[in-house]
Computed example of a mutant assay.
Amino acid sequence: MTLEAFQPSAALTLGVELELQLLSTHDYDMTPYAPDMLALLKNVAVPGAIVPEVTASMIEISTGICQDAQDAWRQLALTRDALVKAADRLNIAVAGGGTHPFQQWHQQRIYDKPRFKELTALYGYLTKQFTIFGQHVHIGCPDADAALLMLHRLSRYIPHFIALSASSPFVQGQDTAFDSARLNSVFAFPLSGRAPFALHWEDFERYFDKMAATGVIHSMKDFYWDIRPKPEFGTVEVRVFDTPLSIERAAQLAAYVQALGAWFLNDRPFEPREDDYLVYTYNRFQACRFGLDGSYVDPASSEAFSLRSHIEQTLAQVMPHAGPEGKEALQQLARLLKSEEGNDASWLRARYGEVQQLPEVVRQAALRFGARA
């Protein structure tokens, strides 16, 4: 098995994927209705795709190629509306969020697809525990070396992405004290974490060939890295976002990735180094555990910041590189940093503080996703 050739794409174009929860409207637990949803939506025209995920209580939607955040929102809105309409026909609901607050992993059913069965054979119970939900953002790159440079530059901002998207404070009925508990489940997989430090595609190909020769991996899909190249699309794929509670937040996060990419291309603000990764896992943990209230150690200067202030500073740096639609999205993220509501994890905790019933929290999250609240 050799690595696919990198297919060039238009620089800074976007693609967005969202993994979503399918819910019973009786008790707002998860329900294995993915086959029914896919059957209903088989002939519905949407901008991107609607596909199954590893368990039958999940579904994934994606956009086509997007030019900016507004384009991503428009495409996601069309698909979201089709999804909600189908769910209404089946008397179920759809929601975002990085985890379902009280589902029991052992009750989940693996979706009937060969790859998912292979994963179950390899990873055992971890496959069902992978009933978690993320947003992936693809950013277009003109060539393979540009993709690796983009990947390692973006790696400095992984804590930003985690804290801004965090929406998984509850697991199995408990408040985990993490804003993003979802990423703890991802870290259980042996091929998770960070990509190897390679800035030239020939070096990355050699790494891939060595890994393939061991029999451990067969394709890029076997790597669960926080960011990975996607050679068949000509993109870099950022994978650490929790699925937000709304498509508006999903589009804002995509806008941030695009603005960072434009800043890198226009100003070349820094060159990535292997030593950037000395504080990578620490910064990642801080964002997962404390969200926007975490701390951040700058890998270049070793100076410590509050994560909130570092995001605020970075938004100001990249704002001039965003288009009109992107600027509005970034301004909304800047307002989030100063608002009492905070990120989606804070919103979920606040709702629980009001109602003290996790099923009601999930119901309200479903209304939020469907733009009905």
Rank of each mutant, 00 (worst) to 15 (best):
A5S: 15
P8S: 08
A10I: 13
A11N: 10
A11W: 01
E17K: 07
L20T: 04
L22A: 09
H26S: 14
D29H: 11
P32S: 09
P32C: 07
P32L: 08
P32E: 09
Y33H: 08
P35I: 08
D36K: 11
M37R: 04
L38M: 13
L40A: 08
V44S: 07
P47L: 05
P52H: 09
M58A: 11
E60M: 03
I61T: 04
Q67T: 12
D68L: 02
A72R: 03
R74M: 10
T79R: 01
D81Q: 14
A82K: 07
D88L: 11
L90F: 10
I92M: 10
A93S: 13
V94K: 01
A95L: 04
G96P: 04
F102N: 00
W105Y: 15
H106L: 04
H106G: 00
Q107K: 13
Q107H: 14
Q108G: 01
R109N: 12
I110L: 12
P114C: 11
K117P: 00
L122I: 15
Y125Q: 15
Y125P: 10
L126S: 05
L126A: 13
I132S: 05
F133Q: 02
H136S: 10
H136K: 09
A146R: 07
A147G: 10
L148W: 03
M150R: 11
L151S: 03
H152K: 07
L154V: 07
R156K: 12
I158K: 02
H160L: 04
F161H: 10
A166D: 05
S168C: 11
S168D: 10
S168L: 10
P169D: 10
A177L: 15
A177I: 01
F178P: 01
R182N: 07
R182M: 07
R182Q: 09
N184M: 14
F187Q: 14
F189N: 05
P190I: 12
A195H: 11
P196G: 09
F197R: 09
A198S: 13
L199T: 12
H200D: 13
H200M: 07
W201K: 04
E202D: 14
E202I: 10
R206P: 00
Y207A: 06
Y207Q: 05
Y207T: 09
D209T: 14
T214Y: 05
H218K: 14
W225R: 04
W225Q: 07
W225T: 06
K230E: 12
E232V: 14
T235K: 04
T243F: 01
T243R: 02
L245V: 07
S246C: 08
S246H: 01
E248S: 13
R249D: 06
R249M: 13
L253K: 05
L253Q: 03
A259K: 01
W263N: 01
L265R: 06
R273L: 15
L278S: 12
Y282A: 12
F285D: 02
Q286V: 01
F290T: 01
D298Q: 07
P299Y: 06
A300L: 15
A304R: 14
A304S: 12
S309W: 02
M319C: 00
P320T: 12
A322K: 02
E328T: 15
A329P: 02
Q332F: 03
Q332D: 14
R335F: 07
L337N: 09
L337H: 06
E340M: 08
E340L: 11
N343A: 13
W347Q: 12
R349H: 11
L358I: 09
Q364W: 06
A365W: 01
L367D: 06
R368A: 08
G370M: 00
A371F: 03
R372C: 04
